[in-house]
Structure formats: structure tokens, C-alpha cells
Amino acid sequence: MLDYHAIADVVREAEARGTTISRVALADQAEALAVPEEAILEEMRGRLEVMRAAAHEGMRADLRSTSGLTGGNAHKMRSYAESGNAIAGKLFALASAKAMAIAEYNAAMGKIVAAPTAGSCGVLPAAILAMMEERGVAEEDAAMGLITAGTLGMVIAQEASISGAEGGCQAECGSAAAMAAGALVEMAGGSPSMVADACAIAIKNMLGLVCDPVAGLVEVPCVKRNAGAVACAVNAADMALAGVKSVIPVDEVVAAMREVGESIPKTLRETAQGGLAATPTGQAIAQRLFDKS
């Protein structure tokens, strides 16, 4: 059985067996949970369905969060993606729209799948759903993509952190971007070592990102950071698929992420005391919301 302490171990195992990371992890998790592989896939398909529904609901123009701070931006972004004018092309703009939709729906007390957290719940589904819609990725392969992502996430959770309070936003949206980058590479037919490179590149490009939510709510800047993180994931996946390698091996990148997270001051780890939360506008919003209550 795998212990998920090093991504290199999983890559080596997949390459030795001439298969994918998701196949290796699926077999391992079926054994660990004492269920057939099909049961895990069925559960993943169910989670994919919750993700799809959240992306759909979150696109409503009139959606508003409980606080009233966010909602409606995903709708704007999707219209723009569909206009054909998006600078980065349709898939990229659509992925951003979906990430915002799910994050806005989360803020509106919608049903989501934490992946790996609620605050970063839009990133991975956005990458996967955009590939399904725009590149015709089949549901079966999308479910396997979730397993690839979950495999990377288990290592990051054990060797670094997936909690904003512990490691800043790099631990939440950064981890989600790394997981999504790996899933994208596998869905696009990349090798296990390309998955590792995409994961490493995504983390490197999110390294040091602080968690500074206005009024302590999972809204500003979280909704847009979900879109930013999926953009980072798509970009990292493309780099890896182009043959670009991470100079720093992926497990060293994860270790660096842990060390960076521990050095982030407490004011920038989900306490709403620094960064954007401490700006005049951020504080005015907090004042207004708490006075109202």
C-alpha cells in the first residue's frame, strides 16, 4: 500500500507498471478502503455530479452570497467566454467562469465538494468540467482525473498543508491548482512524470500566497483567487505537456511550500487581520457587515 508521503513514489510506481497515477491510486485506495475499484469510481462520479450542479447554479446572474458581498461575476465571465473575444481563448475563460461560479455558489450556501477545501472548491472542478465541455473528455476519464488530483492532494496535505489558517492561501488555492494541473495533464494524455512537473510548476507559481479574507468570509478575494488558481493550473499543465520540467523536484517544492507556509505571519493566515482584509475598504466592509448584525 502507498503511504502518500512522496509524489515521486507514486510516479515511480505508475511508470514501473506502465500505467497512470490514477490507476495506481485507484487500486491502492480500493485496497485501503476495502471496497471494489468500481465503488470508488461510482463515488467520484457522484462528486463530479455535485460539482457540475454547483457550476450550473453558480452561473445565475442574480446569485448573491449570504453577506451580499459576492455573486453574479461568474455569469459575466461566462457571457464573455462565449462571446469569442476572450484574450486567452474559450477554454481558459470558461474555466475561470466555472471556478467563480462554484466559489460564488459556495458563498451563497450552495452544495459543493471541498477539493481540497471549501474556500478553494472551484479550482479543480473548473479545470475538469472545462475539459469535458471543450475537449470532449469522457465522464470516466474525468472521474479518474479527480483521483489523480486527490492523490497529489493527499501528499500535499501530509507533507505541507491544505489549511489557510496553517499555510496561507497557497495551501488552499495553491494546493487546488497543483491538483488540477496534474489532473489536466493526465486527462490530456501526459505521462506520470509530466503530472508531477505540472503539480510542481503550479505550486511554484502560487508559492507564498497569503490568506487575507475580508471580514473573515470566504468571499473577497477567495472567489477571484479560485479563477486565478485555475488559470495557473491550465498554464502549468500546458508547460508540462510542452515538455517543460520543474528544476526543483516536486517533493522538494512541496517541502518548500510547508516551510513558506510556516513563515507566513499569523496576520496573513485566515485571521482577517492583514493584507486585503486590513485595507480601508476591507475594514469598511467588515464594519458594515458586523454593524448590520
Binding site: 485506495q29 452570497s65 450556501m109 459543493i112 471541498a114 471549501a118 492532494g153 493527499m154 491538483m179 470566504v218
Partner: peptide, 16 residues
């Protein structure tokens, strides 16, 4: 830890 701790839980937002 298993894979559903990372791809999950299914929950009502906004905060785990």
C-alpha cells in the same frame, strides 16, 4: 487519510 478526505466532503458552503 484517504482520497475522499481530499475530494470531499460534499457540503453546504461556505466554510468547512
Amino acid at each position: 487519510m484517504d482520497i475522499f478526505d481530499i475530494i470531499g466532503p460534499i457540503m453546504i458552503g461556505p466554510s468547512s
